[in-house]
Simulated assay, not measured.
Amino acid sequence: MPKRILLIGGPSTGKTTLLNHLENLGYACLEEISRQVISNAQKEGIDQLFLEKPLLFSTLLRDARIKQFKDVDGFKNDFVFIDRGIPDTVAYMDFVNQEYPEDFIEACKAHTYDLVFILPTWEKIHVIDQERYETFDQAKEIEEHLVQTYKQYGYSPIPVPTGPVEERAQFILNTLTS
């Protein structure tokens, strides 16, 4: 069974760029699904689903991330890299002080990842766009919630140094093979 390797971090930390690079190197990768959820909501006239209906948004993400988690079992690779995990939903709801039902906590406990890497906030690459509306300070606060949440579920997120994507990828690959 492949190891589930999670990439987490606040908005604009380079997760997608890193994931694309790892995929170009031949590694199995599962992309972040929140952009699809956001895009679908915008097509229905909801500009910022997470801000307008955070529990609905988070429920959709949690369910899709559970499916991603299960999909990994079908891979033949040693590692599958995943952009964000189930605990991210809890961290983001904590960030906006949104209450959530117990099934969110149970989902985090029932689906555990093998290793978690965190990409730290990095002002040099921080941007705001149609799906990413958080300021740099908010991104830093989200990072704090992510670290706290993942630690709460027994993970020790490994910080990935900032720098060129090739170096970031090599750091992760070296960590996995050491």
Rank of each mutant, 00 (worst) to 15 (best):
residue 52 E to R: 10
residue 165 V to W: 00
residue 58 S to T: 09
residue 168 R to A: 01
residue 166 E to N: 07
residue 160 V to S: 01
residue 8 I to T: 15
residue 32 E to Q: 08
residue 72 V to R: 13
residue 33 I to W: 03
residue 69 F to H: 14
residue 152 Q to R: 15
residue 66 I to P: 11
residue 177 T to P: 02
residue 155 Y to R: 06
residue 37 V to K: 05
residue 148 Q to G: 03
residue 60 L to E: 11
residue 92 Y to N: 09
residue 153 Y to N: 10
residue 14 G to R: 08
residue 23 E to N: 10
residue 103 D to L: 03
residue 142 I to K: 06
residue 17 T to F: 00
residue 120 P to A: 13
residue 30 L to T: 05
residue 72 V to S: 10
residue 13 T to I: 01
residue 167 E to V: 00
residue 165 V to T: 06
residue 39 S to F: 12
residue 19 L to G: 07
residue 76 K to L: 14
residue 170 Q to I: 00
residue 99 E to V: 04
residue 8 I to H: 06
residue 105 I to Q: 03
residue 87 P to N: 10
residue 164 P to T: 04
residue 70 K to G: 04
residue 99 E to I: 06
residue 140 K to N: 08
residue 34 S to C: 10
residue 47 D to N: 12
residue 93 M to W: 07
residue 86 I to E: 07
residue 118 I to E: 03
residue 104 F to G: 06
residue 114 D to I: 09
residue 132 R to V: 08
residue 33 I to K: 12
residue 131 E to G: 12
residue 52 E to H: 11
residue 104 F to I: 05
residue 62 R to D: 07
residue 59 T to R: 11
residue 51 L to G: 09
residue 8 I to W: 07
residue 172 I to H: 00
residue 51 L to P: 02
residue 8 I to K: 01
residue 170 Q to Y: 00
residue 165 V to C: 00
residue 84 R to H: 05
residue 38 I to V: 14
residue 87 P to M: 11
residue 37 V to H: 02
residue 26 G to I: 08
residue 75 F to V: 07
residue 176 L to Y: 01
residue 15 K to M: 05
residue 121 T to A: 14
residue 168 R to N: 03
residue 146 L to K: 00
residue 121 T to Q: 08
residue 56 L to F: 09
residue 38 I to R: 03
residue 134 E to V: 01
residue 128 I to N: 13
residue 80 V to L: 11
residue 112 T to P: 06
residue 59 T to W: 09
residue 2 P to L: 09
residue 105 I to F: 00
residue 57 F to C: 09
residue 78 D to G: 03
residue 149 T to H: 04
residue 123 E to T: 10
residue 20 N to L: 13
residue 126 H to Y: 08
residue 152 Q to I: 13
residue 155 Y to E: 04
residue 178 S to N: 15
residue 74 G to I: 01
residue 111 H to V: 06
residue 46 I to V: 15
residue 125 I to H: 09
residue 74 G to N: 13
residue 67 K to S: 13
residue 77 N to M: 05
residue 86 I to M: 09
residue 178 S to Y: 14
residue 55 L to A: 03
residue 58 S to M: 05
residue 82 I to D: 10
residue 134 E to T: 07
residue 77 N to A: 12
residue 166 E to Q: 12
residue 97 N to R: 11
residue 84 R to P: 03
